[in-house]
């Protein structure tokens, strides 16, 4: 088992700010999209890689490590920024995000150190997590599988196939985190295909539900410190988040699912983050 040793010194809030700044520079440089969903999950990623996940950047393929599957693969840039922050690969790689021949593809690439699965087609990640958690359960090994889902991908039937399976098999080593930023590709989740009552749905599938503000560091730390939330059950953390969080003109704006900030917008965004508490 990997000791929970090399926890970064910086506090999660500072790490999250650093992830957001890297992410903004990356999408600006690459003229890439999906910045909004990266900003909404940045705080959770900062906590996961800031000491929750039992991972060792010097041994990214250790068979006994915890896994993290970013099932919402379109926010790969936020994961790459987090992994670089944690020391899985040099930060300079981020400067080449989206460039020809860069391994940092627009959706996650499992050949990048620290990336456990290539995703991008929605609705795949929770099944992968089920398989990993099932292997660990049957082998009585302690490694856990964390799966970060978008709210939009809860439309996928395959997600619920996996949810049904995990509840039945009592996969307590499986932790799903929903980045519930309330916006999907075409607009508001509640208008396109409403998920509510979402907590009840997961409970009905025999999951232990933890609802948090996905930008409140105490709440995130609290939820991730007590896992599984209930012995013998998979845990889902419904993290209420704001798409574009941390940049005033991106917050809650569908447009930033697609747009890339220009030079002036990047400067303004970075300034706002530097000035934030």
């Amino acid at each position: 088992m990997i000791p929970n040793s090399s926890v970064p010194a910086s506090n999660p809030s500072a790490v999250a700010r650093s992830i957001r700044k890297s992410l903004l520079r990356m999408v600006h440089h690459a003229n890439a999209s999906h910045v909004g969903g990266g900003l909404s999950i940045a705080d959770v990623l900062a906590h996961l890689y800031g000491g929750v996940l039992r991972v060792d950047p010097s041994r990214p393929n250790d068979p006994e490590r915890d896994r993290l599957i970013l099932s919402k693969g379109h926010t790969a840039a936020a994961l790459y920024a987090t992994l670089a922050e944690r020391g899985f690969f040099p930060s300079e790689w981020l400067d080449h995000y989206g460039e020809e021949h860069s391994p940092l593809t627009g959706h996650t690439n499992h050949l990048v150190p620290g990336v456990d699965a290539s995703t991008g087609a929605l609705g795949h990640g929770l099944s992968l997590g089920c398989g990993i958690a099932l292997a660990m359960q049957r082998d009585r090994r302690p490694a856990r599988a964390f799966v970060v889902l978008s709210d939009g991908e809860l439309d996928e039937g395959s997600t619920w196939e996996a949810a049904l399976f995990a509840g039945h098999h009592q996969l307590e080593g499986l932790i799903a985190i929903v980045d519930y930023n309330q916006i999907q590709s075409f607009g508001n989740v509640c208008e396109i295909l409403d998920l509510e009552p979402l907590a009840d749905k997961w409970r009905a599938f025999r999951w232990q539900v933890v609802e948090i503000d996905g930008h409140d560091h105490d709440q995130i730390a609290g939820a991730l410190a007590r896992l599984p939330a209930k012995a013998g059950s998979p845990t889902v953390i419904l993290a209420r988040t704001v798409k574009g969080k941390g940049v005033s003109f991106m917050e809650g704006e569908l447009l930033w699912h697609y747009r890339s900030p220009d030079g002036a917008q990047l400067e303004r965004a970075l300034r706002e983050l530097d000035d934030s508490p």
């Binding site: 099944s127 992968l128 089920c130 099932l134 660990m136 049957r138 395959s158 196939e161 996996a162 399976f165």
Partner: peptide
């Protein structure tokens, strides 16, 4: 080392892949 995953083939292949990721 045997599981009947139910009538859910997408999940079956995803689980198989996750198991394979774990060796």
């Amino acid at each position: 080392r045997y599981v009947n995953v139910g009538v859910a083939e997408q999940n079956m292949v995803g689980i198989a892949s996750g198991l394979a990721m774990a060796g």
